[in-house]
């Protein structure tokens, strides 16, 4: 049960990453590798601000802003300096490694005795479950704290998803989506596509930074190497989500990305539970993504026959 709750919580936290990747990768068709750097940036900003004595909520908001700026830089490199999309992401990601070290001042900041957003989620358990510490769910004893972190994280992610949905439905959001779909058409309507790309990447990396901030607070430390491979994780979530939904409506795609992230962590948990050889972990992870990519195609062929 602890494993299930842990996986769900991490899945939900990383679903913000998935939403960020969804914006850059799916809405703008922009393979944005900045994610590896901006998730660490979010963690670094949040951790160092919390340690410096700022409120955890303020620190988390600032990590969104930091990610937002990082994404904007990638966008500017791509649109104003005409640097290839993949390359501008790589440039910013590489630069962020040094920035992150600067922000943290060292490579690893522990947050053990600090007050964080997650600890305030934990203390919220007294309002949800009155003062019981251990709750019995169908025979499993579950710490009330963990459960309350899961519930509040879920609520927050749902709120973010709704805000994102509503935003992408506004005039500005529609223009952004149109930029990814048909840049020529939307330019003809008088929209500056460059601004749209910069704004979109900024928003995407802002969400990713936020995800990093929550992740660092959840696991209790920020580490300069924590971003490695995160883009793959985000992409996998988006793709698994699409395979599940098999539909192109905005609301469904957003829901799909979140479900994809949660599902991905659950699959990893199952793989761990079944005691597979630890050295095969990455291979199995790649296998999951492969299946998610092939499944919709296979299903279609199956239906046709």
């Amino acid at each position: 049960m602890t494993l299930l709750i842990g996986s769900l919580t991490i899945g939900l936290i990383l679903s913000l990453l998935a939403l960020g990747v969804f914006i850059s990768f799916r809405i703008f068709n922009f393979p944005d590798i900045t994610a590896d750097g901006s998730i660490t940036l979010g963690a670094a900003v949040a951790a160092s601000m919390i340690v410096a004595g700022f409120g955890p909520l303020l620190a988390t908001v600032c990590s969104f802003i930091a990610g937002f700026i990082a994404g904007a830089v990638t966008g500017i490199l791509h649109t104003k300096f005409k640097i290839n999309s993949l390359l501008s992401g790589i440039l910013v990601m590489t630069a962020l490694y040094s920035v992150n070290l600067r922000v943290m001042g060292k490579s690893n900041i522990p947050l053990l005795s600090q007050k964080t957003v997650i600890t305030s989620f934990e203390s919220f358990s007294q309002y949800i479950f009155s003062s019981t510490d251990i709750i019995n769910i169908a025979g499993w004893s579950v710490p009330a704290k963990d459960l309350s972190v899961l519930i509040l994280t879920a609520i927050i992610i749902i709120i973010f998803a709704i805000i994102l949905y509503l935003f992408l439905k506004t005039n500005l959001g529609t223009a952004m989506r149109a930029t990814g779909n048909n840049a020529q058409m939307i330019r003809a309507l008088g929209v500056n596509t460059q601004t749209m790309i910069i704004l979109g990447l900024a928003l995407s990396n802002g969400l990713i930074g936020l995800s990093g901030a929550l992740f660092a607070q959840y696991q209790g430390f920020a580490d300069v190497q924590m971003g490695i491979g995160m883009i793959v994780l985000g992409l996998a979530s988006v793709i698994i989500g699409e395979a599940l939904i098999n539909e192109k409506t905005l609301g469904l795609l957003i829901t799909g990305a979140i479900m994809g992230a949660v599902l991905f962590r659950l699959l990893v948990a199952i793989a761990l539970r079944w005691g597979m050889n630890p050295n095969d972990l990455k291979l199995i992870t790649a296998g999951f993504v492969f299946i998610a990519l092939m499944l919709p195609m296979a299903l279609k062929r199956f239906k046709r026959n």
């Binding site: 494993l3 992740f215 696991q219 990893v268 630890p278």
Partner: peptide, 9 residues
């Protein structure tokens, strides 16, 4: 295998 999210799992 060097993956912090998996380490948490």
């Amino acid at each position: 295998q060097g993956d912090l999210a998996t380490l948490n799992n």
